[in-house]
């Protein structure tokens, strides 16, 4: 097995750190299995939402009346840019082992992610106060808050994880354990962006079109 070979999803350390590269294969693949099972959870929530958004209006507000597409678009950009920033954090870790620039990119990622969560909470606030659309109003809204809320909760735990990793980088430096944890966090973060593609398309855009 050569060190230049790619062993797992995400950024591979390869020849820049052969020892960590070898160690990464197993743990990253294990984490990949977790991510796939997490996707199954989201799939079930998507299926519930798909059924509820058509059949579960229950005389309450319809999707097109309560969704703010502009907000959804900005949220999409925030999450996409934050995913991109994490990619550059990983490259700074791989090629330069420069803790300072890794931390700077992580900070950018975290700020964009926090802005995303903040905007979503603001969306909820507007929906509940201005549109009279709290979770208990209809099956559609219960499913909506459950699906987007689960995603927002995932993003929030990603942010907590990011803070913990920043502390670990500061305390331990970029050793093998820290690198492997960052690689898994990167996969988690990118996967949440993939789930968001489903949410902005099947929840927001579909809701406004139909």
């Amino acid at each position: 097995m050569s060190v230049s070979e790619r062993l797992h999803p995400g950024v591979n350390l390869g020849a820049t750190d052969p020892e960590s590269h070898e160690a990464a294969e197993e743990v990253v693949f294990g984490f990949w299995i977790f991510l796939m099972s997490d996707l199954v959870l989201f799939a079930v929530l998507f299926a519930t939402y798909a059924a509820m958004s058509v059949q579960g209006i229950a005389g309450g507000p319809a999707p097109a009346e309560v969704f703010d597409l502009t907000a959804a678009f900005v949220e999409t950009l925030l999450l996409l840019l934050s995913s991109f920033a994490f990619g550059f954090a990983m490259l700074a870790m791989k090629y330069r082992e420069n803790a300072r620039s890794v931390l700077a990119w992580l900070l950018a990622t975290g700020v964009l992610g926090a802005a995303f969560v903040g905007m979503e909470l603001h969306d909820y606030y507007v929906m509940i106060t201005a549109h009279g659309a709290p979770p208990q109003a209809s099956g559609f809204l219960s499913a909506y808050y459950l699906l987007t809320g689960t995603h927002a909760l995932h993003v929030s735990s990603g942010l907590v994880w990011m803070v913990i990793m920043a502390v670990q980088i500061a305390v331990f430096g970029l050793n093998t354990a820290v690198k492997l944890r960052l690689m898994r966090l990167a996969l988690f973060w990118h996967m949440l962006d993939v789930v968001w593609i489903g949410i902005f398309t099947f929840v927001y855009l579909f809701g406004v079109v139909s």
Binding site: N12, H190, D193, V194
Partner: peptide, 15 residues
């Protein structure tokens, strides 16, 4: 469009 974007993310971000 969503399907293509998922493929792009898998390819370019998740490698």
């Amino acid at each position: 469009l969503a399907f293509i974007q998922v493929l792009v993310h898998l390819r370019c971000f998740l490698h």
